[in-house]
Write a protein that binds this DNA or RNA. Sequence first.
DNA 1: TGACGGTTAATTGTATACAACCCGGGGGGC
DNA 2: GCCCCCCGGGTTGTATACAATTAACCGTCA
Lengths: 216, 216
Amino acid sequence: MKAAEKAYQELRSSIIDGSHPPGSRIIEQEVAAAAGVSRTPVREALRRLEAEGLLRFVPNQGAFVRSWNAQDVEDIFELRAMLEGYAARLAARSASDAQVAELQSLAEQQRDAARRRSRGWLNRVADLNARFHDLLQEAAQSERLAATLATLSNLPLVLQTFRDYQDEDLERSAHHHLELVEAIKARDPVWAESVMHAHVMAARRVFRTLHSNGKD
Amino acid sequence: MKAAEKAYQELRSSIIDGSHPPGSRIIEQEVAAAAGVSRTPVREALRRLEAEGLLRFVPNQGAFVRSWNAQDVEDIFELRAMLEGYAARLAARSASDAQVAELQSLAEQQRDAARRRSRGWLNRVADLNARFHDLLQEAAQSERLAATLATLSNLPLVLQTFRDYQDEDLERSAHHHLELVEAIKARDPVWAESVMHAHVMAARRVFRTLHSNGKD
DNA sequence: TGACGGTTAATTGTATACAACCCGGGGGGC
DNA sequence: GCCCCCCGGGTTGTATACAATTAACCGTCA
């Protein structure tokens, strides 16, 4: 793997897993040492992460892990609802039969994993969920859309919310995915978009109730 | 100005004005020489432009000016319609009185400039249009939204379409802006969003008719 | 004691040097 | 004559050295 890519991956995952909490400062030298590369590729990785909205640059002070307020959270979910909805719309038009089958398989696996609750089920469900959304974006066949969505869907905010789902939330999520597959099978763009919109709005609701009576 | 910023500005404008046509390769050394800086800040500028969707990187081959197909164009307008619509929605909620007044002023100036056709009116209209959209985004008060929209609104595609507007298109554009101001004054988010959506859809129509019976 | 200023250490920003890699041209083999 | 391989120029990718800027510490003075 290229040095810049390595630095990017390492820093990114350490932001997402919380090793670098929001607001904390990123020292180029430390990242470089951790990844075993020089500062040059690290700086490129930092710029990429800035573009993705994970970092914030202050001139002559470097990079800080981006934090979000209530408005940011609202925006992120609102934008995701629109963009993932659009992705679903496109997928309903142009997904291949193989992709539809794969989507159905992922949705069914997710439903079963959430029901069975065998060891490590939570990580498994989160992984299946991520793969479902990724595959849907791929089926939408829009580089521009994928690039835009990447900056909204790969946030700690989004990736970790899953861990706080209640039983009914998990069930609803699985149902949404299954319904989406049906809508795509039926080649019904409007139906697909509507389901996806509801899917994200439901996720926003979970997040809101979690963070309204709590910290910050 | 910082070297990286300088390189970014120079390269960016030379892409937008067509000096570097779509598909052409960008040589780091040339950009560095043109901007009077070294290759290091140039590489950062290239990464930024990649994140904004103006460039495409091929490993070990460097950067190429991004080109678009019909699907890309559709996506860009579709995404802009959704996102700028959302911006209008937010602006209707939280624009200050001063911002509303400024928006109105800009819209009226644009209308008058398009009517009078005094010297340099086209550039003037394009500038007023850009300032209107920028101010609207500012009034929306969403960093995340602004960042996402920046990668969609600052494309050659969008910025140059204006030059091809017919009289009726220019008039409609000015009317949309004036109506938007009314909707925001009335603090009516749904109205504002609808008008903006129509505004972008109208722009898409102009672009479609221009490029359907022509090149690529 | 508290505020101000200078000095220094740490960090970012930039330039330069070097290594890795790609691509095209020329020569040799079949 | 055609194909393959090797090599050299050019470009990207990375490391290191140096300049510019910041922030903090410490001492001095009111």
